[in-house]
C-alpha cells in the first residue's frame, strides 16, 4: 500500500445523511427571536413524552431498546482482537498447534510460554501452553504469525481479573472437543486472504 492510499481513510461507499440544522442566527435580533420561539414551542414536553412512551413500552410491552449486558452481548467484528482461542482440526479433532514457538517468539509483551516434547508417535507434542493475559496487549501478532491458524483471537472481551497476572492454560483456550462442530473458522487478523490461491506458485510435484 502506498503512503497516499494508506493515509486516505475515506474508503468504502459512504452513506452519511446530512441533517437539516437550519441556519445559525447572526444578529442580536435573530438570536432573541430564536430563544423566544423555542421557549413557547414546548419541545421539552415532546422529549418528556418520548421518554415516557419508551418507559411504558419497556415496562408493559417488553419492548427494550438497550442491550441487557451482561445477559446480552452485541455481535463483535471478526477483526476484533479479544481473548485467544486455540482451534482444532475439523477432521481429526487434534489441536492445530504444532508447537513451532513462533507466537512465543513474536509476542512483544513476552507473555506466551510453552513446553513441548517428543511423543510416542514421533511427533512434537505441546505439553503445556500459557498466555499471561495480565501482560497481553492484544496486538494480534501471535495470531498473525501462526502458520497453522491455531491461535486466533476470539470474541471474549471481558478480561478483568482479580490479579494483575492472569494465566490461561492450553485447555482453557482450546475448543472443547464436544463443541468442535461449533468451532468457527477465523477470518480476522492473520487469516488466509481471500485471494490466497492466486499467490501460490505451482511446483512440479507430480507425485
Amino acid at each position: 500500500m502506498s503512503l497516499e492510499q494508506f493515509k486516505n481513510r475515506n474508503v468504502g461507499v459512504q452513506s452519511y445523511k446530512t441533517l437539516d440544522v437550519g441556519t445559525t442566527p447572526e444578529t442580536g435580533m435573530e438570536k432573541f427571536t430564536q430563544v423566544v420561539k423555542r421557549s413557547v414551542k414546548g419541545e421539552l414536553f415532546v422529549g418528556l413524552w418520548v421518554v415516557m412512551k419508551r418507559m411504558l413500552q419497556a415496562l408493559f410491552q417488553n419492548d427494550m431498546h438497550t442491550v441487557k449486558y451482561p445477559f446480552e452481548k452485541l455481535p463483535i467484528s471478526p477483526r476484533y482482537r479479544a481473548i485467544h482461542e486455540m482451534l482444532r482440526l475439523l477432521e481429526s479433532g487434534h489441536y492445530r498447534c504444532i508447537g513451532c514457538g513462533l507466537c512465543e517468539k513474536i509476542c512483544i509483551s513476552n507473555c506466551i510460554a510453552m513446553e513441548t516434547r517428543y511423543d510416542e508417535n514421533q511427533r512434537k507434542e505441546v505439553t503445556e501452553y500459557t498466555i499471561n493475559f495480565g501482560r497481553c496487549i492484544f496486538c494480534g501478532y501471535c495470531a498473525e504469525v501462526c502458520p497453522e491458524l491455531a491461535i486466533v483471537h476470539g470474541p471474549r472481551y471481558e478480561n478483568a481479573s482479580e490479579q494483575r497476572a492472569s494465566f490461561s492454560l492450553f485447555e482453557d483456550m482450546l475448543t472443547p472437543i464436544d463443541k468442535l462442530n461449533l468451532q468457527q473458522e477465523y477470518d480476522g487478523f492473520g487469516a488466509v486472504s481471500p485471494n490466497a490461491d492466486n499467490n501460490i506458485k505451482q511446483t512440479p510435484l507430480a507425485y
Partner: peptide, 27 residues
C-alpha cells in the same frame, strides 16, 4: 521447519533464503 529442532539455525533454511529459492524446477 515448524517443528524442526534446527529451525532458526538451519543451514538449509539459510542457504535457501540466501540464494532466493522461491520456486522448484525439479522432481
Amino acid at each position: 521447519c515448524g517443528v524442526c529442532d534446527k529451525s532458526g539455525e538451519c543451514e538449509l533454511q539459510n542457504y535457501t533464503l540466501e540464494l532466493g529459492v522461491d520456486s522448484q524446477s525439479y522432481m
